[in-house]
Simulated scan of single mutants.
Amino acid sequence: MPNLEQHAVLDVAGNVRAYLRFEVGIIRGEVPGRADVLGRPSDLLHEQLASRDREISRLRARLAAGDSNATNGGIPPEHFIWVFGVARTGSSWLGAMMGDLDDHATWYEPYVGDVFGYAYYMRAGEQQREREDYILGDPYRRAWIRSLRTFILEGADARFPELGENGYLVVKEPNGSVGAPLLVEALPESRVILLVRDPRDVVASLLAAHKEGSWGAGEDALADTDPDEFVRQRARMYNASFGKAWEAYEAHRGRKVATRYEDLRYDALGELQKVY
């Protein structure tokens, strides 16, 4: 740290100013750069700037699309309730219960998160996402996040015109959770429910559902021919989907709640009250 630090500012003309910073100190080894002297490493500054840029992008998307939504009497963004997680966690049951409430409706499996999440996270690598020509490229992230917001809001209003500005829309999207971070970035005012179930029970339920004679028979023959490989594949899918759902939940600054399937079965009313 410097032993002496002084600075001076002189008004030159109009809005033009001259400034001088002067530091004197004694140190062993190399002379530190200014960022090190101030105790703010450059990589930390870059991280903070990147975080601020992402926050500005979210706020601009909210401002740009929020005004138009407010004037058309559609479902307010803050009345969207996302249900993220994975399949076989009780999301259909939860969606049905919430959809039965007054001024509520449930949008079952729109797969909007799958469409955008797969293209952005799974198909495109880091190099692809950095390309300006890629439609979901990071250089134009603000533009397509704003488009995603409009896409969701108008899609919901077209399907649920009866809800209007006083209604709540429960969006059951466990199978689209790979795109959950993008969805909450596009609608930062929305609410999030992260539905959790023991992954061993999830995979066991999927295996039973796809075996011969069950309701999902024929969709994946591995359930009968090679159940071990079926379990390995579903475990990888669980990890990818729930990982992004958790990432979205952690990043979301709006109203959110995490609930376990086991707790929902034990006290459904109590868990529902946490949502509101």
Rank of each mutant, 00 (worst) to 15 (best):
E132P: 10
E132H: 08
E132W: 12
D133S: 03
D133R: 04
D133G: 04
Y134G: 01
Y134F: 15
Y134H: 02
Y134Q: 01
I135K: 00
I135H: 01
I135W: 03
L136F: 00
G137Q: 00
G137S: 01
D138H: 05
Y140G: 06
R141K: 14
R141Y: 13
R141F: 11
R141G: 09
R142E: 13
R142G: 10
W144F: 05
R146G: 08
R146K: 08
S147A: 13
S147I: 02
L148H: 06
L148D: 05
L148E: 06
R149C: 11
R149K: 06
R149H: 13
R149S: 15
T150V: 12
T150A: 12
T150Y: 06
T150Q: 14
T150L: 13
T150K: 10
F151S: 07
F151M: 14
I152V: 15
I152L: 15
L153Q: 15
L153S: 15
E154K: 09
E154C: 09
A158M: 04
A158L: 10
A158H: 06
R159N: 01
R159I: 05
R159F: 00
F160C: 06
P161V: 08
P161K: 05
E162Q: 15
E162F: 14
E162K: 09
E165P: 12
N166H: 12
G167S: 05
G167K: 03
G167A: 02
G167D: 10
G167E: 02
Y168I: 09
Y168C: 13
V170R: 04
V170S: 03
V171M: 12
V171S: 08
K172Y: 00
K172Q: 10
K172S: 14
K172T: 03
E173R: 05
E173G: 11
P174I: 02
P174K: 00
P174A: 02
N175H: 05
N175A: 12
N175C: 04
N175W: 01
G176T: 07
S177H: 01
V178E: 03
V178W: 01
G179T: 03
G179H: 04
G179N: 08
G179L: 02
G179Y: 02
A180I: 06
A180S: 15
P181D: 01
L182N: 11
L182I: 07
L183Q: 10
L183A: 11
V184G: 10
E185T: 14
E185N: 07
E185W: 03
